[in-house]
Design a protein around this nucleic acid. Structure first.
Lengths: 243, 243
DNA sequence: GAGTGGTCTAGACCACACA
DNA sequence: GTGTGGTCTAGACCACTCC
C-alpha cells in the first residue's frame, strides 16, 4: 500500500515509455521490450502492461505485431486536422459577431436542389449572415436547410448556433457527418460590398454539407471569407498529447 | 471449441453495440448496459467486455464515467481532418506529375530566415517545382530547408518525396509536427505563367512548416494551387469506420 | 521450439455516484 | 448501501514469427 503513488501502474509504465520515445532514446522502428519483460521489470502483471501499451498504441506512439513484437511508430505527418466552428475560426480568443441579413423560405433553385438532393422547386430555408470581428467584416455566411413544416427555427439558433447543431435540431435527425470543401475565389460585387472589401480581391469559399447517418444531405452552407482576414490552420497529429 | 466463430468474443460484442448505435436503436446520451450485465448476457468475463467497450470508446462511439455508466457519445462534427500529401491532393486516383524548376543553395532572405528561425544570411536550400495532372499544371511548389554541409539531397527525393519525409531525411532529426495554413490569394505574373493561368485569378496558398520535437522549424514550404483546379476537402470524424 | 503478442478467465479491491 | 466503472492479478491457451 503506497500512499505516494496515486497514479496507476499501467499509466506510469505508459508515461515512462512515452518519455523515452519523446526524448529520442527510443526511435521510430525500434522494438520495445516484450510484454513479459516489462511485466517483470515493473513488477506488475502482463494484463496491466497490456493496458499501458494499449494507451500508447491509441495515442499513436507504438504499433504491435503478433508474433514479432511492439515497435515505436513514426509520427503521421500527412494527417492534418482542424476545428471548424465559426466561434473558433480566428482562434480561441477572437470572437466573431454575427449579423443576420435575411431569413427566407423559398423554392430551391436547381443548384441548391442538387446539393440538398431535394426536388427542384421544393421549399427551403435560407439564412444569410455577416460575421465580423472588432476590425470589421470577415466572412459571409449562407446556409440552406430543407423547409420542414412545424419545425420553427429559433432566432437565437439561427444567429448563433453552429451549423451542425442547427441542422440536427431542425431536422430532428441525428446528423452524422460533416464534409467541408475549401476553394479559392475572388469577391463578387455584392460580396465585396457586404465585406467592405473590393471586387476581385481573394477570398476563401468554404462549403459545408451535413449528412445524416444514411448519407442524405441535411444542410448545406457556403462561407465566403476575406482572404486578407482569414487563414485556415491545420496541424498534424503526430502523437496525441494526452495519454 | 467452436469452429464457426473465428471472431473473438470482445469483437463480436463491439460490433453488436456498434450496429445498435448506428441503427439509431441506441441514441447519443443513452446509457448502455453495465459491464456486468453485458458479461452475463454474452456469457463472457467482464475483462472481455471491457476489451470490447474499449474498442468502441477508442472509435468514439461511447464514453464512460466512473460510478455512473457507459453512454453513447454524440459524433463530433467540428473536428475535421484531411490528408495532405501531394500524391493525394486531387484524390486517390489522380496522380500528380512533378517537374523540377530549380534547386539552389543561397542565402536566406529576411522573410525566409524568420520562417525557419535561422540567421538572416545563412545558407538555405530552395527547391521549386510545378505539379501537374493530365489536364495541365495544378500547383506551384516552393520548399526551403536549412543548408546542411555533407547532407546531399538525392534528386529522386527532391522530385518525389513528400515534404515531411524529405525534411526528416535531410536533417536527420526526427520531425514531429506539421503545421499547415491555407489562405486565399490571386496569381502573380510569374505564377500565372508557370501555371498557364492568368494574373489575378484566384489561388490557394498553402504554407507548411515542419517542426522538430523541440519545436524548431526544420522546413518551410509554400504551395500555390490554381483555384479552378483544386479544392481542399476535409471530413469530420464522427465515428471511426474501423473498430 | 522458443518467444512474441492476442484472447480469455474468475476472481479481487478500489473510487465514485446516487439514493 | 448498492451499483457503476477503474485497476489488477496469476494464471491459461492460442496464433503467429523466426530460427
Amino acid at each position: 500500500m503506497e500512499l505516494r503513488s496515486f497514479i496507476p501502474a499501467y499509466y506510469r509504465l505508459a508515461e515512462d515509455l512515452k518519455t523515452r520515445i519523446e526524448s529520442g532514446e527510443l526511435k521510430p522502428g525500434d522494438i520495445i521490450p516484450s510484454e513479459t519483460q516489462l511485466a517483470t521489470q515493473y513488477g506488475i502483471s502482463r494484463m496491466t502492461v497490456r493496458n499501458g501499451l494499449s494507451l500508447l498504441s491509441k495515442a499513436g506512439y507504438i504499433t504491435s505485431f503478433q508474433g514479432k513484437g511492439c515497435f515505436v511508430a513514426a509520427p503521421q505527418m500527412d494527417r492534418m486536422y482542424f476545428y471548424f466552428s465559426e466561434h473558433t475560426l480566428l482562434g480561441e480568443n477572437k470572437k466573431l459577431e454575427s449579423r443576420l441579413l435575411t431569413v427566407d423560405v423559398l423554392a430551391a433553385d436547381p443548384k441548391t436542389a442538387v446539393k440538398l438532393q431535394v426536388p427542384a422547386d421544393s421549399r427551403i430555408v435560407q439564412i444569410r449572415r455577416v460575421l465580423s470581428d472588432v476590425d470589421g467584416p470577415v466572412a459571409l455566411d449562407h446556409r440552406v436547410l430543407p423547409y420542414i413544416k412545424g419545425a420553427p427555427l429559433l432566432e437565437k439558433e439561427i444567429e448563433y448556433a453552429a451549423f451542425p447543431e442547427l441542422v440536427s435540431r431542425h431536422t430532428e435527425l441525428a446528423s452524422a457527418r460533416n464534409n467541408i470543401s475549401v476553394q479559392a475565389c475572388v469577391l463578387m460585387k455584392e460580396e465585396a460590398k457586404l465585406l467592405k472589401s473590393k471586387v476581385g480581391f481573394p477570398a476563401l469559399c468554404i462549403e459545408q454539407i451535413i449528412y445524416s447517418r444514411d448519407d442524405r444531405p441535411l444542410g448545406w452552407s457556403k462561407m465566403i471569407c476575406r482572404g486578407d482576414r482569414f487563414a485556415l490552420k491545420a496541424v498534424s497529429e503526430p502523437y496525441s498529447e494526452r495519454l
